[in-house]
C-alpha cells in the first residue's frame, strides 16, 4: 500500500466553442480557478503544474496571472492528445512522492479559432514545432499534414487486415458523441449523432475517415487538481482516487504518425499502458 494515495480533488472546465473570444492564457486561468473553487482551494495552494508539449501556455504567465506563490515542480508531457492524459501520471507521482501538495493538470487552447489541427500546416518551419521529433519532415513534403492523414495510414492497414470498412468505425463516433452530448458545456450538448449521420458525412481521408470520425475541434480549457487522499478529506468534494496512471513511449513509435513499428495494426502505446494499469 502506498502511504500517500493521489486523488483528483477538483475539476474545472470552460465552455467549449468555435470561438472563445479570449486568449488561451485567460482560458487557462479560468479553468484552473474553476478547478480550485471546485476543490475548495486557492491559487496560493498550488505548487505543482503540468501540461503537454503542444500547449502554448507558459507556467510563468499562469503564475503571474493567478497569484500562485511558487511552483516546486513543473513538467510537460510529450506528444499529441495522449500527452494530455499523461499529465495525471506526473501529478500522481508528484503528490505521492511528497514533491508537491497541490498539483494542477491543464489543457487550454483556441484550437478552433486560432490553431486548428485539421487545417493543413505547411509552414516552412513546421518541422521544428511541437515535440521536435521531426515527424513532419517525412510526411509534409508528401501532402500528409493533418492528424486524420497521419493516423489514417495505420487505420487503413488495420481495415485491410480485418476486412473492415469505414462503416465499422461509425459506432465509435456515435458512442463518443452520445457521451459528449451529456456535458452542458459541450458545443454539441444534447446533440448526439446517428450511424446515418456518420455515413453521410464527407470524406476527409479515403477510404478511412469521414468528417464524423474526426474529433470536434473546440476552443476551451480544462484543469484538474490532484492532491493526496489525506489532504482531500478536508476539501469540498468527495475525491476520486487515482488507482494508477502511467505513460508509454514504446520503441519505434512517433509523435503522431506511427509508420515504422513492426505491426501497424497494433497500437503499441495502448497495449503497454494497459499492461501497466
Amino acid at each position: 500500500m502506498k502511504r500517500n494515495k493521489a486523488v483528483i480533488a477538483g475539476i474545472g472546465q470552460t465552455e467549449f466553442s468555435k470561438n472563445s473570444g479570449r486568449s488561451e492564457l485567460q482560458l487557462s486561468c479560468e479553468a484552473i480557478k474553476l478547478a480550485l473553487d471546485d476543490a475548495g482551494l486557492a491559487p496560493s495552494d498550488v505548487d505543482g503544474f503540468s501540461t503537454f508539449t503542444i500547449d502554448n501556455n507558459e507556467d510563468v504567465d499562469i503564475i503571474r496571472s493567478m497569484g500562485i506563490e511558487t511552483l516546486r515542480f513543473s513538467s510537460r508531457t510529450p506528444h499529441g492528445g495522449g500527452g494530455s492524459m499523461a499529465t495525471i501520471a506526473h501529478g500522481m507521482a508528484a503528490v505521492e512522492s511528497g514533491l508537491c501538495n497541490t498539483f494542477v493538470c491543464l489543457r487550454a487552447m483556441n484550437e478552433r479559432s486560432e490553431a486548428r489541427f485539421g487545417i493543413a500546416h505547411m509552414a516552412p518551419n513546421s518541422n521544428n514545432k511541437g515535440s521536435g521529433s521531426g515527424f513532419l519532415e517525412w510526411s509534409m513534403p508528401f501532402g500528409a499534414a493533418t492528424p486524420a492523414a497521419w493516423t489514417g495510414i495505420q487505420a487503413q492497414r488495420y481495415m485491410a487486415r480485418y476486412g473492415l470498412t469505414n462503416a465499422d468505425f461509425a459506432p465509435i463516433s456515435v458512442l463518443q458523441r452520445k457521451n459528449a452530448a451529456t456535458n452542458p458545456l459541450a458545443w454539441y450538448y444534447q446533440k448526439p449523432i446517428t450511424i446515418e449521420d456518420h455515413q453521410s458525412s464527407r470524406w476527409i481521408v479515403e477510404p478511412v475517415f469521414r468528417l464524423l470520425d474526426c474529433c470536434q475541434e473546440s476552443d476551451g480549457g480544462v484543469a484538474l487538481v490532484i492532491t493526496t487522499e489525506e489532504r482531500a478529506r478536508d476539501l469540498r468534494q468527495k475525491p476520486a482516487l487515482i488507482a494508477h496512471a502511467t505513460q508509454s513511449i514504446p520503441f519505434d513509435t512517433e509523435t503522431v504518425t506511427n509508420f515504422y513499428h513492426k505491426d501497424l495494426t497494433v497500437f503499441d502505446s495502448g497495449v503497454q499502458c494497459a499492461k501497466e494499469l
Partner: peptide
Amino acid sequence: AFIHPVHPMI
C-alpha cells in the same frame, strides 16, 4: 498501407 487525403486540399 495507403490513403487518399481529400480534405483539406493543399
